[in-house]
Nucleic acid binder design. Structure first.
Length: 301
DNA sequence: AGGTCGACCTTAGTGC
DNA sequence: TGCACTAA
DNA sequence: GTCGACC
């Protein structure tokens, strides 16, 4: 499941291939995948045809391509992508090949050597849409990959990345402390700090030795700050490793490869000994999803 | 206000 | 082999 | 992964 490190890997990979290219073809195989576009496939095509990719930016799990419209119609637009649970963006140059069975949208990009950008999404929870850019409330850059103090309207409620130096950890910890919900839920709240998903939330909690079910307001401020720092560390390390599993012409998110199989301490390791104390890692249901933790290092308080 | 649950959708894997 | 259920 | 409904 793509979280901040995975989406950032995709962003970096894409930047190297699509910047400066113009969209010459738009194929929507699955209208549901562009469901957030009010005018449907027709509007989606109209707004994209002829547009050029000026920048590729990201905030949390949102990715967007800032468009240079052919006839500057005033409003700044971006092609927004959210990968959901299983989305992938793939770039390749064989314009002859047909779309795979899970390809939902295909864009043909012009240039010296034309290329294809496929949005592949098995489960379909992800989506693509064209959205208007709105100014950031703090005046800072809208996301990683752009200097513009703007981001897509539909991502405006997302906080700055947990890994963003501009995010004030102490202030964020204070906000967390005002919540009575389980700290894991607060960590997953994209309006608090963006980019943390189920996997990295479990990893951060394990590193900080905090039980995710503990009410946030019952945790001392320094521990909340430590939790945020732990999250920042895991995601930074994951990004460093995630970069290695992608090669030039194949840009994707593969939930099983690289970082996943090796470096995770608790996620997907139910029954395995805790790397710190040897106690078997436990897996429990939490808010309709699974949580992994060490019952010894992460006692409920 | 918080917490739990189901919905959204597709498919690969597991077990009887 | 296939259906039912689950995890992702 | 995310949203909205209901207790």
């Amino acid at each position: 499941m793509p979280e901040l490190p995975e989406v950032e890997s995709v962003r970096i990979g894409l930047a190297g291939h699509v910047l400066g290219r113009t969209i010459e073809g738009v194929c929507v195989y699955r209208p549901y995948s562009i469901r957030h576009t009010p005018g449907g496939a027709e509007e989606f095509q109209d707004e994209l045809m002829g547009a050029t990719f000026a920048e590729v930016a990201r905030r949390g799990k949102f990715l967007w391509f800032i468009l240079d419209a052919p006839e500057g119609t005033g409003r700044a637009l971006a092609l927004v992508v959210h990968l959901g649970m299983s989305g992938q963006l793939r770039v390749h140059s064989d314009t002859e090949s047909g779309p795979g069975s899970h390809t939902r949208v295909r864009l043909t990009l012009g240039g010296a050597s034309p290329m294809i950008l496929d949005f592949v999404d098995q489960r379909t929870f992800g989506y693509m849409t064209v959205d208007e850019l709105v100014l950031t409330t703090d005046g800072g850059p809208g996301g990683v990959g752009t200097q513009l103090p703007a981001l897509p309207a539909r991502a405006a409620h997302i906080a700055r990345d947990l890994t963003d130096p501009l995010l004030d950890l102490a202030a964020t910890a204070e906000r967390m402390k005002s919540r009575r919900s389980p700290v894991k839920a607060v960590l997953l709240d994209q309006g608090m700090a963006a980019g943390v998903g189920n996997i990295y939330a479990d990893e951060a909690l394990w590193r900080a030795r905090i039980n995710g079910g503990t009410r946030a307001d019952r945790i001392a401020l320094p521990r909340l700050i430590a939790l945020l720092e732990a999250g920042r560390e895991v995601m930074t390390e994951a990004l460093a490793q995630g970069g290695t599993s992608f090669d030039a012409l194949y840009v994707n998110v593969n939930g099983e490869s690289g970082y996943f199989s090796r470096s995770l301490n608790v996620y997907g390791r139910a029954g395995d000994p805790c790397p710190r104390c040897g106690e078997p890692i436990r897996r429990e249901a939490f808010a309709n999803r699974s949580s992994h933790f060490c019952p010894r290092c992460q006692r409920r308080k």
